[in-house]
Amino acid sequence: MNLEIYCAIVNEGLGNKVLKILKEQGVNGATIFKGKGTVHDKISTFFALDDVRKEIVISGCDEETGDKAFLEVCNRLKLDKPKRGICFSITLEAIIGSNFYDSSRKINVKEEDNMENKLIVVIVERGNGEAVVDAALKAGATGATIVNARGSGIHETQKVFNIEIEPEKEIVLLLVESENTDTITDEIRKELRIDEPGRGIIFILDVHKTFGLYKGE
C-alpha cells in the first residue's frame, strides 16, 4: 500500500467544500489551515494564486483513494482554471497517530526519478514571510502561500520583560520546477540569512503528483 499526503490550496470559503467532497470519496480525515496567497502580477503561477486569503486542506491516505478523491475536488472546483487553486501529493513512508491507518502495516515506498516539481517549505519568524516571497520571486519563483504558525526551539525564544516567549512563525510554501530549486533556495538563504541560528529553516520535498495544475501563457 502506498501512502500519500495530499494538499489542496483553494480560495477562502472553499475548504469545507473540499472536506465534503473528500468524505464522499472515502477520505475520512483532513485538516484546514488558513493562509495567504501571493503571486507576481506579470507571471503565471503554478499555484495560480494572487494576493487573497487561502485555505489549505491536508489529508493523508492511500494513493488509490486519494488520487480519485482529489481529482474529483479539482474537477468540481475547476482548479485547472487560473486563480482557482491547486492540489498536489507527496509520498509518505508512514502515517503515525491516525485512527484510519495502522502504522505497523508494510508500506511500499516507490522510487520516483525526474520529479518535475519540488515543494520548498520555509519556516521563519512572523513578519519575514513576505521577505521570503520577495527573494523567491527574485530568483524565478512564480507564487507562494504563507501560513501562520508557532514554533519553539533552542534558538527560537525571545524575552519580553525578562519572560521567554515562543515567537509567532510563518510557513512559506513554494511549488517550483525542479530545475529552479537550488537557485531559489540559495536566494532565500542569502536574503534571510537562514544559516544563522534562529533565523529559520528550509526543507525541500519531492512532489509526486499535481492535480489541476494551471500553466498560463
Results as ranks from 00 to 15, higher is better:
residue 5 I to T: 12
residue 12 E to Y: 13
residue 17 K to L: 08
residue 18 V to N: 00
residue 18 V to G: 01
residue 20 K to S: 08
residue 22 L to I: 03
residue 24 E to M: 05
residue 24 E to L: 06
residue 31 T to D: 05
residue 32 I to N: 04
residue 32 I to K: 02
residue 32 I to C: 03
residue 33 F to R: 06
residue 33 F to N: 11
residue 35 G to T: 09
residue 48 A to Y: 05
residue 51 D to N: 15
residue 51 D to S: 12
residue 52 V to D: 15
residue 54 K to H: 08
residue 54 K to I: 09
residue 57 V to W: 01
residue 57 V to K: 01
residue 59 S to G: 04
residue 60 G to D: 07
residue 62 D to I: 10
residue 63 E to P: 04
residue 63 E to K: 10
residue 64 E to M: 09
residue 66 G to W: 01
residue 67 D to I: 07
residue 76 R to A: 11
residue 77 L to W: 03
residue 77 L to V: 10
residue 77 L to S: 05
residue 78 K to Y: 11
residue 79 L to Q: 01
residue 82 P to E: 11
residue 83 K to D: 07
residue 83 K to G: 03
residue 86 I to C: 07
residue 90 I to W: 03
residue 90 I to Y: 04
residue 96 I to P: 07
residue 96 I to N: 14
residue 97 G to C: 06
residue 97 G to D: 15
residue 98 S to N: 08
residue 99 N to Y: 09
residue 99 N to L: 09
residue 100 F to D: 15
residue 101 Y to D: 14
residue 103 S to P: 13
residue 105 R to V: 13
residue 108 N to V: 15
residue 108 N to S: 15
residue 111 E to R: 10
residue 112 E to M: 12
residue 113 D to T: 10
residue 113 D to G: 14
residue 113 D to C: 11
residue 114 N to S: 09
residue 114 N to R: 13
residue 115 M to K: 14
residue 116 E to Q: 14
residue 117 N to G: 09
residue 117 N to E: 12
residue 124 V to G: 00
residue 126 R to S: 12
residue 133 V to A: 07
residue 134 D to S: 11
residue 136 A to H: 03
residue 136 A to T: 13
residue 138 K to I: 04
residue 139 A to N: 02
residue 140 G to K: 01
residue 142 T to K: 06
residue 142 T to L: 03
residue 144 A to Q: 02
residue 145 T to R: 03
residue 146 I to Y: 01
residue 150 R to Q: 10
residue 150 R to V: 13
residue 151 G to P: 05
residue 152 S to Y: 06
residue 152 S to F: 06
residue 154 I to K: 08
residue 155 H to R: 11
residue 156 E to T: 12
residue 159 K to M: 15
residue 159 K to P: 08
residue 161 F to L: 13
residue 161 F to C: 13
residue 162 N to K: 12
residue 163 I to L: 10
residue 164 E to G: 12
residue 164 E to F: 11
residue 167 P to G: 08
residue 168 E to Y: 11
residue 173 L to K: 01
residue 174 L to S: 07
residue 174 L to P: 06
residue 175 L to Q: 04
residue 179 E to W: 12
residue 180 N to K: 13
residue 180 N to V: 11
residue 182 D to M: 09
residue 182 D to H: 15
residue 183 T to W: 06
residue 186 D to A: 06
residue 186 D to C: 02
residue 187 E to Q: 02
residue 188 I to K: 00
residue 188 I to C: 00
residue 189 R to W: 00
residue 190 K to L: 01
residue 193 R to D: 05
residue 195 D to S: 00
residue 195 D to R: 00
residue 197 P to I: 03
residue 200 G to E: 00
residue 201 I to H: 00
residue 203 F to N: 05
residue 205 L to W: 07
residue 208 H to W: 08
residue 210 T to F: 06
residue 211 F to V: 08
residue 213 L to E: 13
residue 215 K to H: 06
residue 215 K to P: 05
